[in-house]
Nucleic acid binder design. Structure first.
Ligand SMILES: [Zn+2]
Ligand SMILES: [Zn+2]
Ligand SMILES: [Zn+2]
Ligand SMILES: [Zn+2]
Lengths: 148, 148
DNA sequence: GAGCATAATGAGAATGAATCTAGTTTGTGT
DNA sequence: ACACAAACTAGATTCATTCTCATTATGCTC
């Protein structure tokens, strides 16, 4: 199972959209399918490039609109991938997820996951006046390639 | 000690700048002093508003330039405060710091700190091919005021 | 299947944070 | 005081993101 396209996520996403009262539309479906093909964060403009070529082409506004709706429904997570640009990545319905280390020099992004970190975050969230529904962790530094 | 202006941080910052080979200049000093007056993150444009009125006025470019230099030297930390805008806050030279919970509805930002979270992050950083020099944690959700 | 209300779409304009440019001023060593 | 580089300001520019609005497609009812 090395296929990078997560069909089950795509199905889940489309169902959730429908359940939320959305009609089905070609552009949004295309965005969902494109997201399903990426294991880690993609920028909106990357998706736009990817989808503009399709026939019929998907408009930029539709990409952003779809991403916003998906984020609202908790189907994708938005993270700041580099100064002033956001990356979007699909959210596993079971809650399984990773975080990122980002190289300050080359922008390379390496995902990681760690259960004691998740536990600590969960505990902090409990003891907060906020009702925390989401969290994000970013490590910044120099990747091995840029360190030499 | 309820004074919000942290004089010691300002002094430390100005010394570090000088040690890094920077001349002293009015605009940058003004930015340092303004930052010293804020306990938590401020946006560059807020600082700009605050400093534009001075005589002589500080230019927007100088604000951004100073913030970038300060960040480079580890004297301020940059965090995404809301969609597409960065906030900057001073970094305690002793390493003491906090993270933030941000309300999705009203944008309110509540700082918190937690040692087991820091410990977990430290451990993850150790086991990484990256050389991690900085980390950021953001909790998102609904604040008590917006929850009612 | 035709007709309707309304959601979805896409081209392009508008926004706004951040960066760049050019020309001027200021700081520092001699 | 002089020279030279760093620092400065105003304004133009870039670029991701959002908005507008005319057009098309969808789901529903008859
Ligand atoms: Zn990822
Ligand atoms: Zn996590
Ligand atoms: Zn803070
Ligand atoms: Zn921390």
């Amino acid at each position: 199972m090395t296929r990078s396209t997560d069909t089950s996520w795509a199905e889940h996403a489309l169902e959730t959209l429908q359940a939320a009262g959305h009609r089905r539309g070609g552009a949004r479906t295309a965005v969902v399918e494109a997201l399903a093909g990426h294991d880690c964060a993609v920028t909106a403009l990357d998706l736009d490039d990817e989808l503009r070529r399709r026939r019929p082409p998907v408009g930029r506004a539709s990409v952003y609109r779809a991403l916003e709706q998906l984020e609202q429904l908790g189907l994708v997570q938005r993270i700041e991938v580099c100064r002033g640009t956001a990356g979007y990545e699909r959210v596993d319905p079971a809650g399984h997820h990773h975080h990122h280390a980002i190289c300050r020099d080359c922008g390379r992004m390496v995902p990681f996951e760690n259960s004691s970190l998740e536990r600590a975050i969960h505990e902090v969230s409990e003891g907060m006046s906020f009702e925390v529904t989401e969290h994000d962790v970013v490590l910044r530094g120099t990747c091995e390639r840029c360190a030499n």
